[in-house]
């Protein structure tokens, strides 16, 4: 290889690449609160979430050129995070339980209302039966496959299609896991609220 100085075109290309990279890193960092918000509920503890987010950004910054500018960067980052989280072998957990849940979508409301002394309380007061801790604990009880979808859609506010892309599963699977995940969450919430 020659030792000659780089051409003007090459110098320009290098400068442009450096600028794109800086811009990518800035944009990615601006989303870190949102990435953490989802990562925190994909994992069991603050420490695990912090490790996961750090590894996610380390990987994202290494492979930044694989990101297609103009596409959804938040989804791209979460795809790295969910893949890393799965790679960590947390799937040693048992396969998701396939027994049908008998309770419908009104189950939680009906259970909570039944514990209240007054006839026909308004929904705000029914909701007051739930605490923040109950939500955190109930989410942690949802098996991972369902929780991933639930966290992406209901906490991360991703669409079905985005969640499907992030987790690399069909949209129909997102819908069925979400449906079941929400019911498991409600069952857990009902137990925690009623036993307290």
């Amino acid at each position: 290889m020659s030792e000659s100085a780089p051409t003007a075109a090459e110098t320009r290309r290098i400068a442009e690449e450096a600028r794109d990279r800086v811009r990518f890193e800035e944009e990615a960092l601006q989303l870190s609160d949102q990435v953490y918000r989802v990562a925190r509920r994909l994992t069991g503890s603050r420490e695990e979430a912090e490790d996961l987010v750090q590894d996610t950004y380390a990987r994202a910054f290494r492979s930044w050129q694989q990101y297609q500018p103009g596409t959804n960067l938040r989804a791209w980052l979460l795809r790295i995070a969910t893949n890393l989280n799965i790679d960590r072998g947390r799937r040693v957990q048992r396969a998701p339980d396939q027994t049908p849940l008998e309770e419908g979508d009104y189950y939680l409301y009906n259970r909570l209302e039944s514990t209240m002394p007054d006839e026909n309380p308004d929904e705000e007061r029914v909701l007051d039966r739930l605490s923040q801790n109950a939500v955190v604990d109930a989410l942690a009880e949802v098996p991972h496959d369902f929780r991933d979808v639930l966290v992406l859609v209901d906490i991360g506010e991703f669409s079905y299609a985005e969640a499907a892309q992030i987790l690399d599963i069909p949209v129909g699977t997102v819908m069925s896991r979400l449906h079941r995940g929400r019911r498991i969450l409600k069952q857990q919430l009902a137990e925690k609220a009623v036993t307290n």
Binding site: A18, E25, D33, E50, Q54, F61, V136, D154, L185
Partner: peptide, 28 residues
């Protein structure tokens, strides 16, 4: 749904924010 979203939120620590910023390339 709104309650779950708010209840599940736990702010990111400043320490983590700094660590992430430290992962940037030398150009940044």
């Amino acid at each position: 749904r709104h309650f779950v979203r708010v209840a599940a939120h736990e702010p990111m620590s400043d320490g983590l924010k700094e660590k992430l910023a430290g992962l940037r390339s030398a150009d940044s």
